[in-house]
């Protein structure tokens, strides 16, 4: 069982470099967009880009894409927990 389980999935050097380039482009994009005044939407765009960047890091650099379902499920649980915590706190602070 150990042998099959511990099989490494090889990702090509090219993939890593492509991901890195996309991350740099997204960084440029988020800096550029921050200069444009969009009022409330600025923060949403910034967070959206950051979320996109972090999913690239998670999926490729951290190999989450190639791990089994357990890792995906665990990660979603954490994401969900944070969302719940922030949302329920907002129920208080935004309504106060």
């Amino acid at each position: 069982m150990e042998h099959h389980d511990n099989q490494q999935h090889l990702i090509s050097y090219g993939t890593y470099i492509t991901v890195w380039l996309s991350l740099l482009i997204l960084t440029g994009l988020t800096v550029a967009v921050a200069g444009v005044h969009l009022g409330k939407y600025n923060v949403f765009i910034a967070l959206l880009v950051a979320a996109f960047k972090s999913s690239l890091v998670l999926l490729y650099f951290m190999h989450l894409r190639y791990e089994n379902r357990l890792f995906h499920a665990m990660f979603l649980v954490v994401l969900f927990t944070i969302t719940v915590i922030v949302a329920l706190t907002y129920v208080d602070t935004l309504a106060r």
Partner: peptide, 12 residues
Amino acid sequence: WIFLFPLFYLIS
């Protein structure tokens, strides 16, 4: 850091 950067540096 991917989150810290826009949340602190890019809100002006």
